[in-house]
Nucleic acid binder design. Structure first.
Lengths: 232, 232
DNA sequence: CCGACTTTGTGCATCGCTTCACAAAGCTAC
DNA sequence: GTAGCTTTGTGAAGCGATGCACAAAGTCGG
């Protein structure tokens, strides 16, 4: 996406690395809770479920924060990764769509270990508006733009039905939001510069089904190209 | 993972392609509902949010199902992709952990367009056991192995707290399940041959935060390496 | 101060996915 | 049958991520 010129101290961290940093952070937090002062790339990689060479290369993109012969200082590395991910500041998040999923997200314990704060819950259904969920009152989607501006919302979670998702998306991007987490099963169209991440249960299940089928037999039965002699 | 020998009609479909097939399928279903008989790679790619060359290469892995000068027959392509993904059969899915998230998943409308059927809802909390959710009665996790065997469950969704996830995982894999969709924020350890897919809200938010921070300034403030003069 | 040991950081080869660009294939009109 | 148009399927180049393997850098005991 972003076109960058490689530099001496290149701040362009590969996407694949960024996607793994939260994993390392979680593993490190576990170690910190148990009071572990330092950790080797080997052990941290094991805890995060990746191989150690990859872990070292990932961390090398942030800087040279390890000590040869010793490993990484757990607290220091937690701080560096948190800073890189932007978790040293609080992000105001609004959740649009307070159905089953929206409620589940709103109640998600502590809303992920620090860094994020639910600043608004919105729904289009008048019967839901006014409900109190984990300390917040659900507001009507008419207030969407006002809530975003008033409370400095920079990340919006879309947990609406598929049919409403694009419209919500258009409104929040128009209101200046540039980061969206989409749970609705649709491909969102957004202006340049807006990041959308998608979480899609049905896609995940379908990928699992594919592999499951592969395990059962060697793939689909090749002789059967179309059922019951359907003609083209 | 699986070591394959390339063949004339290679059935080894790249992972990246498999991950996109459900997207194409969804777009095709939308077209089918509107009665569109055929579609070009260009139009289908647009609807699925990918570029057309990639779409054509993806579809070419399934076989040669298009007609030059015309495009793809919508119905036929739906059938071929469904078959490849293993959606022409029904998969029995069990959901373990009926908290907010488990309920949201259980109520997920029609449980994704065909191919999957919820065969069990299980929870360790006696206060939840016996609840009726979208036509199913919640059973106790003591019954886990029995439910899996009795109802031919082949895919398990883990929606438990993080602390219970590995234990549930161990039990279901021991019971013969080889496909797991994990919503708990932990790295699951599984035997060879078991597929785990992970859905993790906090990771997605952290990735968004990273990019959001990049947009705001040119990255973290480099001068500040550690706050308040903390000594190492 | 030295030598043995540990562990990081990285150059390099490799792999898999993406994208381009175009020949081959099929359609329609005449 | 042929010309002209459309669109697929794919060879090949490009690009980024992975993993190996090792030199560099640091620790520790004596």
């Amino acid at each position: 996406m972003s076109r960058r010129i490689p530099q001496a101290r290149d701040r362009g961290i590969p996407d694949a690395t960024v996607a793994r940093l939260p994993l390392y952070l979680r593993a490190l937090n576990g170690l910190a809770e148990r009071g572990t002062p330092t950790v080797s790339s080997e052990d941290l990689a094991l805890a995060a479920g990746v191989n150690s060479a990859k872990l070292r290369k990932d961390l090398s993109h942030l800087g040279s924060y390890g000590t040869r012969g010793v490993g990484y200082d757990v607290q220091y590395l937690i701080y560096q990764i948190s800073r890189e991910l932007g978790l040293t500041q609080d992000w105001a998040v609004a959740i649009v769509g307070v159905g089953n999923l929206g409620r589940a997200l709103a109640n998600y314990g502590g809303f992920v270990s620090r860094g994020f704060r639910i600043a608004g819950l919105l729904d289009a259904d008048p019967r839901v508006v006014g409900d109190r969920i984990s300390g917040l009152v659900v507001e009507h989607t008419d207030e969407l733009e006002a809530v975003i501006k008033k409370r400095g919302v920079s990340i919006v979670v879309i947990a609406t039905p598929a049919s409403a998702a694009q419209q919500v998306c258009d409104r929040v991007t128009a209101a200046g939001v540039t980061s969206i987490l989409n749970f609705a099963p649709v491909v969102l169209t957004v202006p340049d510069g807006v990041d959308v991440r998608k979480v899609d249960l049905s896609i995940e299940l379908q990928i699992l089904a594919f592999h499951e089928q592969r395990k059962a037999n060697g793939g689909p039965i090749m002789s059967e190209e179309w059922p019951d002699g359907v003609v083209m």
